[in-house]
Amino acid sequence: MNAPASLLAIENLTVRFGGLVAVDHVSFEVKPGSIHALIGPNGAGKTTVFNCISRFYQPATGALRFGEHDLLTKPRHRLAELGVARTFQNLELFGELSVFENVLIGTHSQARRTGWLDLFRAGNRPGEHRDRIEHALEQTGIADVRHVKARALDFGRQKMLELARALAVRPTLLLLDEPAAGLRNREIDALDAMLVKLCRTDGLTIVLVEHVMQLVMSISDWVTVLNFGTKIAEGTPAAVQANEQVIDAYLGREQADV
């Protein structure tokens, strides 16, 4: 059997909220080991697509394939176990818990793999999980605040904690919802380098929704552009930047002209 060319395949995805069609027959594929950006104006349906992949929304029609798995048959809490991790646009940290415990919970799905009894063992004992947690803390540069409550961190570090927690899942596919939003330029540069390293060195596949074009254009291998719930273009960053329809969408010119 041939290995599939794509790690994640989205086919004819349609999502409706009441009468509103938020995503309309969108299809795209994500190649393993690539950084794939999903861009588009506000309300284009990017986060909705994300929420379908991570099983928070149920699409009306369409198929989602991850490796050999049909994602639509999996409950949302099984995704981590399959190797899909995500971050959230509006930060969904465990606020009252320490940085360490936040990341520890990221390793939860691996406890399931090693059996139910593992649930009753202490989480902070040395071992494979512990190494994984330390590694994630180091990678994101928040090891020095491991005992601080997540709520008490500054915004930039909270974003890094979201990332560290997702990395603790040991994902093969990392879904990042606006990782650069609200960060300062210096922090964006660091993020830029970090994501490239995760992809090139650690072999992760990254899909990101992003508004910060500087980040998207510098690190992405492939860009998919959504507007009003439909895919209007895809290609390399350079190709997409030159695309007439994309420029129209961003400048808000009338669609009827096209």
């Binding site: 991790a85 969904e92 465990f94 899942v169």
Partner: peptide, 18 residues
């Protein structure tokens, strides 16, 4: 940890495999 994760954020807990 899973108990506390559910208390703090059900959404994030589910995404982490809880």
């Amino acid at each position: 940890s899973a108990f506390r994760a559910v208390r703090e954020s059900e959404i994030a807990a589910a995404a982490m495999g809880v």
